[in-house]
Amino acid sequence: MSIHQTSFVLSVEDLTVSFDGFKAVDGLTFYVEPNECRVMIGPNGAGKTTVLDLICGRTRATGGSVRFKDQELLTMREDQIVLAGVGRKFQTPSVYEDLSVFENLELSFPRGHGVFGSLFFRRDAEVKDRIQEIAETIFLADLLDEKAAFLSHGQKQWLEIGMLLIQDPELLMLDEPVAGMSVAERKKTAELLNRIIDHRSVIVIEHDMGFVEDIATRVTVLHQGKTLSEGKMDKVKNDPKVIEVYLGH
C-alpha cells in the first residue's frame, strides 16, 4: 500500500461529489503514474470535467481522497494546489484579454505569487528568456506584444497551454484542448501536446478519438460518475460496455 502511495503521482480514491443528492462523481478510484498520459472519455454529463474540478479544488468533494505526491489535495486551497504542482487548463480558453501575450505568460511565471512578492516583482533576464522560450514553443513568439483579445481562438488555447507550461506543473490537466479548432490548428496542437506531455503526468479530457489514440498511455471511460472501463486504448475500444454507451453512437 505505502509503496503504491509513493509510486503514483496522483491517487484518486473513492472520490464522490453530490449536488443536491445527485452524484456527479460516485466512488471514483484511479491512479496516475509518472509520465503517464491519462485520457478521460465518456458521454456528456459523465462527470469528466467535474473530476478535474475536484482535483484542482474548484469544486469541493463530499467524500473520498485525492493525494498528489502524498499530499491530500481535498483540504487545500486552489492556489496552494497549483503551487504544489498541479496545473489546469479550462475548456473555454481563459486568457487575460486586456493584457499582452507577454504579460499573460509573465503572470504564470512561478515567482512572486504573494502580495508583496508581486508588488516588488522584477522582470529580469531569466523571466524574459523563459517567456521567449515558451512563446516559441506555442507558436506565439511574434505576437508577444499583441493584446490577447486580438488572438484567434486557437492561439488563445495555445497561450493558455503556454501559461501552464511556464508554471512547469508535475501534473497537467487539460479539458478538451483541441475543441473548436480548425484542422490545421488541431494538428499543430497535437504536435505541441505531444511535446509537452513528455516529462510530466497529464490528464486529458477529449472527444476526438483519433487524437486520443495518438496521445493516450491509458484511457478511463466514465459513465454516470463511475469508471466504466479502464486500460490501454485497444482494450477499451473493444470493451462491449464502452461500445454500447459511448463509442456506439
Binding site: E78, F90, S94, S108, M163, Q167
Partner: peptide, 11 residues
C-alpha cells in the same frame, strides 16, 4: 478571469 488567476497559483 478571476478563476484563471486563482488557478495560476495566486490567492
Amino acid at each position: 478571469q478571476e478563476d484563471r488567476v486563482r488557478f495560476s497559483g495566486y490567492d
